[in-house]
Design a protein around this nucleic acid. Structure first.
Length: 881
DNA sequence: CGGCATACG
DNA sequence: CGTA
DNA sequence: GCCG
């Protein structure tokens, strides 16, 4: 792949280029004249012209290259560039404020400052010169951050290396053609296009409008459409795009494998015709809502109907989100419904005092005007819940927008731009989901006003997107509902109360860890050493490497010298401490203390080796050995852990196939292992979760749920699907029954193909002394097909699905427990142990008295962490392994 | 020199 | 011991 | 292997 970067802001361009080079190993190519060569780094290739550069890249087209356009003098000839099939044009932009600041900091370095007029001049000339190219880019990335680490997280979630952008798949190809066809529409109401294909060949195309020979609808040919009133369908003379495509093809040319691509979901009338002509597959653009009747008809007629993805979204969602007033309620939004005391018997009398935590900030009254009494909160909650039943159609559910509330964690969109959005949304502690029917749903009919009022200077695309959706009469593009407190939307979190993370802590749960480390090679080397220790059964040795690795990963910058990481941690304010550190390291002016978890003897030496030689010898040796790769392939099989994998590879087993031949495992096991090794796109995770929640909703009235695991940590790809479900007010018995019923329901449709474990709440076990409430889990394998958007193409894929049913009071603790990575979980528990608490996935105990703490007033994951005296770290920064 | 997360099958 |  |  060959990426050309275009943009105006130096810093954003530089960060992007650095990210591609350091994280993905791109090679930097530049067009420039000789005199410039000396100034820049040595691992760059220089060319006299775009043509020679492209020739160079063409010969090595399987490598990854990047070329920046940092200043107009060395700009690349993009037209030449775009002709090649392996090239990707990426535009990066930032806010005017950022750009101005970045230019000023450069100006300061050179000893002169910028006036705002000079900046405006620069912007006008540079931006206008590049505007056309920026709009032609394959991807437009908008960087709202001033901080590199945040931007890198966003970049990572964009998945720049996705080959699909270079060459669209068939679905995208035909859908784009359908969009093109819609441009020929002559209907006053809406542009619609359709493409009918057979064996990947186009049979016919269609767009909507009046029949041949009649005056075009746009010229007044259809009285109904030109009336402007949504009535009189019988009088409409327009043919729909789908009808036109079908008529054009004629019955005889529509075979068994015909696929119809529509850029909107077909109406019921068209659906009937589609079924009758024998078409078995309909693909529509996901930006539009499925018509319920159409969906039903297709299901009865076994026509598979699903939507496709596009990469046309522009990453400007962040400014949109930040412009929503997420901070404070305004008075006009705070019309409270009458409080409902009857539901608050137990809630209102309790406080968090019993956590033995007198300085718990929750005991202080919030000084904000937004503070609600418990009774009001419950009243509000009930009202909202009763509304959520009447979701579809009008969508006027919540008259007072929850949008003002801090505790909004879920944002849902009527279409599914997940990957593009999640990077931005998670920055706000928001999690993206596509479920529209969860309880406490807040759809923003009322929000429309707010959204359309957003006018960010860099935000024209968003505006467009909103107005388009409104014009197309689709569900409003944005609706918000609550994540962390699915069943208590009024939980109010004030960031001022948050405990701050500390990057020098020995506990991973106190530190933030980027999704992708700028020191990935070193992290990888440490991972190899860790794996090696595990294989050798050196458990504690392995743990030490895991800890060191996590420590390195919490370092947000590229480590350049050993002072960077081994000494540079600022000493504490404690003077004595600082003095002793100073004498130890003989740097009296810059007192430092050693980094935790990186010991003086072994691991520090490995890191220094990496710094000096760019590699760790022992890791290289292990990596290069046959044993290592065989060990890994065996390890990937369910039921074969480190011990067995090590034993087998040592006893001369060469491959997984050999195990199958020997009858040690079945072919099915091997295939399953292969399937489970494939990672799952966010999109697919969401669709599978939606499907599961569909079943859940037929069993529970208003389930609350969260997708956890790597998905919640904003990873672009997941290994499995983790869903936590609860229902406000449900008893343990009801939840137990629910889990069994859900399992049956998923099995009966053939979706759940293998059940690996089913545990219920309150199981009696001889290992447990008391009858505590434990989590209830269902671990299984499901068959994911094309309708879930499997990236592997036509064939069904097996995916691991974990469903956890939590009792309501443990919901947030369960979310916490299923969101952290392994190191986060470990350190969470060792930390609370030191504070005389004991933690498992569903309850908190006093470690000495074994008394269980009541979590029923815990309003969110964030709140829970505060109670545990731990900082709340946004999920995307919990990737510490 | 003890501790290092916790639980289920 | 393997897995979440 | 590292921390306290």
């Amino acid at each position: 792949m060959f990426i050309a970067l275009i943009g105006v802001d130096h810093k954003t361009l530089e960060w992007t280029q650095k990210y591609l080079q350091e994280v993905h190993g791109f090679i930097l190519l530049q067009v420039c004249c000789d005199s410039q060569k000396e100034k820049t780094a040595n691992d760059t290739k220089y060319f006299n012209s775009t043509a020679t550069m492209i020739d160079y890249a063409t010969e090595r087209w399987q490598n990854n290259f990047v070329t920046p356009s940092l200043d107009s003098s060395s700009s690349v000839d993009f037209d030449l560039f775009l002709r090649r099939p392996f090239t990707l044009l990426v535009a990066v932009e930032t806010t005017l404020a950022n750009m101005m600041q970045n230019m000023q900091s450069i100006g300061h370095k050179n000893g002169h400052s910028f006036t705002i007029n000079q900046f405006a001049d620069f912007y006008d000339t540079t931006y206008k010169a590049r505007r056309d190219k920026i709009s032609q880019a394959h991807i437009n990335i908008f960087n709202p951050y001033t901080n590199e680490q945040d931007y890198i997280s966003l970049l990572h979630s964009v998945n720049l290396l996705d080959e699909q952008r270079l060459r669209p798949n068939w679905d995208t190809y035909f859908m784009e053609l359908a969009d093109l066809a819609s441009q020929r529409s002559n209907c006053m109401k809406r542009r619609v296009g359709a493409v009918l294909t057979q064996d990947k060949r186009i049979v016919s195309t269609g767009y909507n409008g009046t029949p041949k020979g009649l005056t075009n609808c746009t010229q007044g040919g259809c009285p109904r459409c030109n009336n402007g009133v949504e009535q009189g369908f019988a009088e409409c003379l327009c043919l729909h795009a789908e009808e036109n495509a079908l008529l054009e093809a004629g019955r005889t040319r529509i075979g068994d494998s015909a696929v119809l691509y529509c850029n909107t979901c077909p109406c019921l009338g068209c659906a009937i015709k589609i079924v009758q002509t024998g078409i078995k597959e309909v693909v529509y653009n996901q930006a539009y809502r499925v018509d319920d009747k159409t969906a039903q008809l297709f299901e009865n007629a076994t026509v598979s109907c699903f939507f496709t993805n596009f990469f046309t979204l522009i990453f400007t969602i962040y400014p949109l989100l930040t412009h929503l007033n997420l901070k404070r309620p305004t008075n006009n939004l705070m019309k409270q419904p009458p409080s409902d005391k009857s539901t608050t018997d137990d809630d209102s009398t309790q406080s968090s005092d019993e956590h033995d935590n007198p300085d718990d900030p929750d005991n202080k009254d919030d000084d904000s005007e937004a503070t609600l009494s418990e009774s009001e909160m419950v009243g509000e909650k009930r009202k909202r819940r009763s509304g959520s039943g009447s979701r579809s159609g009008s969508g006027r559910i919540v008259e007072e927008g929850i949008i003002y509330n801090h505790d909004i964690r879920f944002i849902s969109f009527s279409f599914n731009p997940s990957i593009e959005l999640v990077g931005a949304a998670t920055k706000l502690g928001l999690t993206v989901t596509s479920d529209l029917t969860s309880s406490d749903l807040i759809i923003y009919e009322s929000c429309q006003v707010e959204l359309t009022q957003l006018s960010h200077p860099d935000n024209s695309v968003c505006q467009h997107w909103i107005t388009d959706s409104a014009a197309a009469n689709t569900t409003l593009p944005i609706c918000l509902y609550n994540l962390n407190t699915s069943y208590d939307p009024n939980a109010f979190e004030d960031p001022a109360l948050d405990i701050q993370p500390d990057s020098t802590s020995k506990y991973a749960c106190w530190r933030t860890h980027p999704l992708v480390s700028p020191n990935e090679e070193l992290v990888d080397a440490l991972r190899v050493l860790k794996q090696d220790r595990i294989a050798r059964d050196e458990k504690w040795n392995a743990l030490a490497y895991t800890r060191a690795l996590s420590m390195v990963k919490s370092f947000p910058h590229r480590i350049r010298s050993k002072d960077d990481i081994l000494l540079s941690v600022p000493a504490s304010d404690d003077e004595e401490d600082a003095a002793s550190a100073a004498s130890t390291y003989k740097h009296p002016r810059t007192p430092t203390k050693p980094v935790k978890n990186i010991g003086d003897k072994k691991i520090k030496a490995k890191i220094e080796e990496w710094l000096n030689y760019g590699r760790v010898y022992e890791a290289e040796k292990i990596r290069g050995s046959d044993m290592h790769s065989i060990y890994h392939s065996l390890y990937s099989i369910q039921g074969i852990g480190p011990k067995k994998a090590f034993e087998l590879s040592r006893s001369g087993v060469r491959s997984v196939d050999e195990l199958v031949d020997n009858g040690k495992i079945t072919q099915d096991d091997a295939t399953l292992a292969q399937h489970l090794n494939n990672s799952i796109s966010r999109d697919e995770v969401e669709r599978i979760a939606n499907y599961v929640m569909g079943h859940a909703r037929s069993l529970l009235a208003h389930p609350s749920y969260a997708i956890c695991g790597g998905f919640r940590r904003a990873k672009p790809m997941s290994n499995d699907i983790d869903i936590i479900i609860t229902q406000h007010g449900a008893s343990v018995a009801q939840l137990n029954h629910f889990l069994v019923a859900l399992t049956d329901s998923l099995q009966s449709t053939g979706f759940l193909t293998k059940l690996m474990r089913q545990v219920s709440l309150c199981v009696a076990s001889n290992r447990r002394k008391e009858d505590h409430d434990y989590q209830s889990t269902m671990l299984g394998v499901v068959e994911s097909s094309r309708k879930f958007g499997t990236s592997e193409g036509e064939h069904p894929q097996y995916r691991r699905l974990d469903v956890i049913v939590a009792k309501p009071a443990s919901f947030h603790l369960e979310i916490l427990s299923w969101t952290g990575s392994v190191m986060y979980e470990r350190d969470l528990r060792s930390y609370v142990r030191r504070h005389k608490l004991k933690l498992n996935a569903s309850s908190v105990y006093n470690d000495t008295t074994d008394e269980e703490l009541d979590l029923s007033l815990v309003r969110s994951e964030r709140h829970l962490l505060r109670v545990l005296r731990l900082p709340w770290i946004a999920p995307q920064y919990r990737n510490c392994d």
